[in-house]
Structures are given as C-alpha cells and as structure tokens.
Design a protein around this nucleic acid. Structure first.
Lengths: 391, 391
DNA sequence: AACTAACCTGAATCCTTAG
DNA sequence: TCTAAGGATTCAGGTTAGT
C-alpha cells in the first residue's frame, strides 16, 4: 500500500513542491471540468499524476426500433450520437485509445474503474487485459429497481458490471478493506453491490423537466468506488464526466477531481451541481483504518517499554506451548530462536504465523494475546494514528 | 419461438425419420460421454444438430503461489494442467477454436451458454461477439457461500458470469419465460441468480475423500439454464463435461445430452453419477406454458358459439367506453369498425392494443375481460392444448 | 395534514405469423 | 423480403393529484 499514510509519510498523496520532477510539470487542473476530447485532455496532463480513474464510457447499445411498455407508453432509450459506433472494431479502437491515455496519467499504484453492460464490457475488459492492466475485481452492480423486460423475451437485465484494475500485476492499490467491511455490517464486502438506479430528486432535470443526461449514475455507486480505492486528498479523474456524479462525490469525500466532457450542456449541469456541494474535510471523511496502515510496532518495543520483561514466558492459546522472551525481542523455544512470527510458525510446523495473535501472556484476565499490548502502545503514539471510525 | 411446441407441431424438437436431410446424417451419440478433444468431437457431429450448448471452459486462472487461510490451512486451488495457458493469445485461440466448432453444431435457433470468471469471461465474450454470436443476457451467478478473500486485499469474489447467446441477432431461441417467472414467485426472473456452490453430498469425491473435480458446478445452476432455454427432448451438448453436471440435470429434465471430456477419471465419475439417475418424463418435466403457444382463437368464434350476441356491447375496464358487437366478430364505435384490437387501439388513440384484455362484457361478476371467454373456448379444444402447468 | 391512488419512468441490443 | 395484423407484455419506487 505505497499510497497509504504511514507514520513517516502521513500524506503520501501530496506531492512536495520541492520535488525535483515537479519543476517543469504543468499544474493539475484540480476541481475543473474541461470541455473536449478526453484523450487529448489526458495527454496534456503529466504522467502518473492521478490516483484514481473512474470511467463510464459509451456502451455502444445498438438499440433497434422503439420499445413500448405494456401500457403502450414509449421507453425513452439512449439514442444520443455519442453512443453510436459504426462497427465493433471502431468501438475497440476507441476503447484502446482512451484507455492508453488513461494508463499514462495513472500513478503506478493507482486504480482504474470502468463501468459497462454486456454490450461493451467484454470489449473493455479485453482491451484492459491486452494493455497489461491487472484486474482486481469485477463488481456487479445489482439494481434494486431495474427496468423490466417488457416483452418477456429474456431475463430482466438488472445488472451492470464494473471492472477494477491496476496498471500492473504487482501494483499495490489503495484498498480500504476495513472501511468496506464496516460498511457491510462487519462482514467482508462482496463484489456484488445492491444499489438503486438514479431517480427522484437526485436525477438532474432540464428546465423542461426531462432528464439532463440519459445515463446518470447514482452517487451511492461512486461513493463506494471512491471510498474503497482512494484516500482523502487523492486526485480522481473521470474522462466521461457527464453531469458530474464523480466530481460531486469526490468533492463530498474530500478528494480532488478532474473531469473531461464533450457536451457543453452536461458541463453546465455538472458545474452547477458541484458548486452547491460543500467539500468534505477532516474527520467527516475519515474511514475505518486498515490495520495495515496503523503504525508498525516492533515486538522489541514491548520489551523496551516494560510491558514484558526479558526472561518472562509467552504461551499459545491453550498454554501448552511456551517460549522465553529475550531482551532484543526475539523468542526462544528449545534451541530455536527468532521473531515472534518465526518461532510461532516453527512450533506449529506452519509456513507462517502472526505472532501477535498466536502468543499470549499471563494477565489479570488470564492468557491474553500480546496484540493487546501492541494496541496499548499504539494508543500512546499520539498524532501518528489515523482518526477512529466515525460512529 | 420457432422451437416452442404448438397445436400443429407439438414436438418441434423431434426430427422425423422420414426427413430427407437425415438420410446421410450420422446418428447423434445421445446420452454418451466421449473421451477426447471436444473440437474434433464436435466437428464429427452433423451441422446444426444441437439445441443447447453449455460450456464451462478452463478459466485460465493464473494463480500465483500457494494461498493459505488465516489459520494456515492451504487453499486447494485450480492447478490442473488443463487450466494452464502460456499466454492470453493462446487462450484466445483456444476459445476461438472451440467456439467455432460449437457454432457449427448449434441449430440456427439454438442457445449457447458459457460460464467464466473475470479471468477469462471478457476474452470469451469478445470471441463470441467476434464470431457474430448475439448476446441475449449476461447472467450473474451470485454464490450464497463463496470463499472469502483471506488476505483482505480485494472485495470478496462472490460471483461468476454466464453468457447466454444465440448464433445470430435474429435467432428466436427457446425461452421459457413463464416457467422462469413461476420459479421466481410470480415476478419475472432477473439476470442475477443466487445459488450455493456445489458442496456436501452433491460434491463428487474420490475414494480418498478429496474432491473429484476442482470446479464442479451445482446442479441448481444447470437446472435453471436447461429449463429456461430448452424443451423436453432437446439435445444438450457440453464440450467440457467434467464430472457431468450437465448430463445429470439434462437426464433429470428429460433432455438428451452429449458430452466431451479429456480426462478418463472425470468420465468415470460422471458415468457412474448419471447411471444412477432416472430419466425425467411426462408431466414431471413440463413447465408453465406460455400464452404464446396456446392455439389462436378468432373473436368471431365467440359470437359463433353464442358466448356473445350480435348487437350486444363491450366496455373498457371502467365502463366509460363501449362498442357494439357485430355478427362477423368486428366491433363498431361511432362510424369506426374493425377487429377488437383495431377498435381498442383507436378508442385509446394508441398504436396497438390487445383487444382480448381491453374489452369487457357484463357477467354475473361485473365487467369481465372477454379473454375469459377465450379461455373457456380453448378448454373445449381437447387435445390441442399443452398440459396444464404443474401445481 | 394524512392517507390513497393514479401516474410516471429507468443504459433495452424486448413479437409472431399470415399473406 | 416485405407489409399488415393479431395479440402478448412490466417492476420498483418516486412524484403528484385527489380524498
């Protein structure tokens, strides 16, 4: 998690002005919506300058004639010019080009998300993989209120698919695992998300009452994307900005955004929408910290700070296995010594072991994991911890 | 629904022996598992001879090193030789080849299903589209009991994706819409299916207790696939037969199956499994019929058989609109006359109208749709109806 | 004001058969 | 291959009008 805050570098997302490579770098147009082609736009940005890309490209729907509901009302389909491609090859080329530009501006450990339907998502996924992007998850957006299949000819098409990918296989993207778990009532978040489509007051309307954009995404969807794979202060880029759901949610969550959009009308709606939003700051946008981002505590400090004395003994959960504590923070069992992890693994004959949870000490409450001591030490490291989760 | 039974052709799936084109056709190896490469195998079958193909190809998982759970037990991943491909290109070529062979044996209105994960499904979907297959739905299999993400580095990967496609855009595949709706408590079936993974007694085991196949699919999944897109007596082909879930469910549901499998061990398990199953027959495998397949009744017959008299009046649901019945089965409103549908459309100023449900007559129970009369007439047309839905 | 009912709408590759 | 006509087909949720 090179992007995660640590004790030594609490703001890894902020680039210091004194960084040498920033001297000739054009400033990022943070918080701005740029009108025009996103490929040219992204190519004008510095390389590897963006933490997160969310893209909602045209789906290339290829709709046939009109479709009417059983009550004879007509369905208002997506017939905009920007969704028209002459051939699948043309669509593939389009995908290749914008993804290549996106790849260039994305930081090495940044994340890219693309949303689509079965019409286009297989093409997009293939292009991503062909460009060496590494898929982390496919996410299924399960619409709680999809449009039905009116003619009874297929299964109701109630989902869209998002692909979450990194630039390379070995990238270490930001992933706020514990925040997602917290958001999911304490159990690990799955890759299928139930969220309603964008309707009601959230849906932007033109002055004549019709929808401002045919495919406006719900803020809840972007909330989960941005919260899971970026940190406050990160830069979020959306190459197909539309009416600005990405920008709105980014601003609420205290991230910077950059948007590209061709249609002036969409931009006007987006700008007005985003201007109304108060930028999220401080503890309002903090999430449950991942243990990974908590400051590392060497076992030696437990000895150093007097929580355990050299020569005292640690035990496994049942008390049947014991090891002697040495002054440097190593343990000794028989003639084998090593870290709490190494010795834990050895006595279990296991390939690895988390010593913090395996080893226990005698406290007033009986055998207690030494992890409790680590928590105490961390609590004393004032200012080096991320804030606690918002209740 | 060219494949759906009708009054005139109640068994469209059965090929008459007297058909001229069947004279030189090698017989289909129905109910047999063939050992060997599925491409050669399919190419040895007659063209356009199969109603349904279900394929669970290798996923090209590209697993890294061993994966262990937090308690250090090792996860038994998919590491079989058949899942190894040197490059993505090799996988694409493989997909192209077997799909081409599958396309050849599939009937013009047949359906093909392919299941995969994010590792391979984008490749498969792209190849399908490149071969002019037409995607009907993407189906999300939501596992009710997925394996968690033990490392906490991603969202829990709780889904697999199935693609349902036809050979062409204008194909009319079998789709038992009403059966699916019935199965889903009366509301139309969505494309996201919650089903458990294959565990417990259903999971085939070797004599040493380990699983016989690393990716055995649950029968519930195949049940829904086969029931929705085939009819009794149809031929279901599975090019990657494995331990025979497709064959087992096909036999239970009264469909014929053809399987190809390379590994002898899998075949032995599959054969044993399928031999134990009693072939489904008769009303046990019938599903809710579609109104589309019911015999057509002209409105004139309603008059002819005395259910309504010439000169009587029909009304809309509220009773505010009325039309006079004429002896030839036409209706009259003002100076406009025409079929029940034409007049219904006219008085609503709608492009079309189902007169059977729009028009009502005065019965002892108040205003009743004339569709009720049609149902009565149909009930008297002995032998021309499909069996009633199983309760 | 509170409740009910009618009405509207959403990224959709959405019919079948006779002539 | 075309047109015309028969007739089959919808779920959840929000807004608005009516009681």
């Amino acid at each position: 998690m090179a992007n995660a805050p640590t004790a030594d570098n609490p703001h890894p997302h902020l680039r210091l002005v004194s960084d040498l490579d920033s001297i000739d770098m054009p400033p990022l147009p943070l918080g701005r919506i740029m009108q025009g082609d996103c490929i040219e736009g992204m190519n004008a940005l510095p390389e590897e300058s963006v933490d997160l890309i969310f893209a909602d490209p045209p789906y290339n729907l290829q709709l046939g004639g009109d479709l009417s509901r059983p009550d004879n009302s007509v369905v208002n389909g997506v017939t905009e010019d920007w969704d028209q491609f002459d051939t699948m090859d043309a669509y593939d080329l389009f995908s290749h080009n914008w993804l290549q530009a996106a790849r260039r501006v994305l930081k090495p450990n940044g994340s890219i998300w693309v949303v689509g339907s079965y019409h286009n998502i297989f093409r997009v996924g293939t292009v991503l993989q062909d460009q060496q992007f590494w898929i982390q998850n496919d996410i299924i957006w399960r619409k709680s209120n999809p449009m039905p299949n009116f003619r009874g000819t297929r299964f109701c098409n109630a989902t869209e698919t998002l692909i979450w990918a990194t630039k390379t296989e070995d990238a270490k993207p930001t992933f706020n695992y514990d925040a997602m778990k917290m958001m999911n009532d304490g159990v690990q978040m799955r890759n299928d998300w139930v969220l309603p489509i964008c309707t009601g007051k959230e849906r932007l309307k033109k002055s004549d009452g019709t929808k401002a954009h045919p495919t406006q995404k719900p803020e809840s969807l972007l909330h989960r994307v941005i919260l899971s794979t970026s940190n406050p202060g990160d830069v979020v880029l959306d190459p197909f900005f539309g009416t600005g759901t990405t920008g709105a949610v980014a601003k609420k969550l205290g991230r910077h955004f950059i948007g590209f959009e061709m249609e002036e009308d969409y931009i006007l709606h987006a700008q007005k929408r985003i201007d109304k939003i108060k930028k999220g700051t401080g503890e309002n946008i903090e999430v449950t910290a991942s243990r990974r981002s908590a400051p590392r505590v060497p076992f030696g400090r437990v000895i150093e700070q007097g929580f355990l004395s050299p020569g005292s003994f640690l035990f496994n959960k049942t008390g049947h296995v014991s090891a002697k504590v040495r002054p440097d923070g190593s343990l000794l069992v028989g003639d084998f010594s090593g870290s709490i992890h190494q010795v834990g693994a050895r006595v279990q004959n296991a390939p690895s072991c988390n010593g913090w949870t395996y080893w226990h000490y005698h406290s007033t409450e009986g055998l207690t994991p030494i992890d409790a001591i680590r928590d105490e030490i961390r609590a004393t490291m004032e200012g080096k911890l991320r804030p606690a989760p918002v209740a």
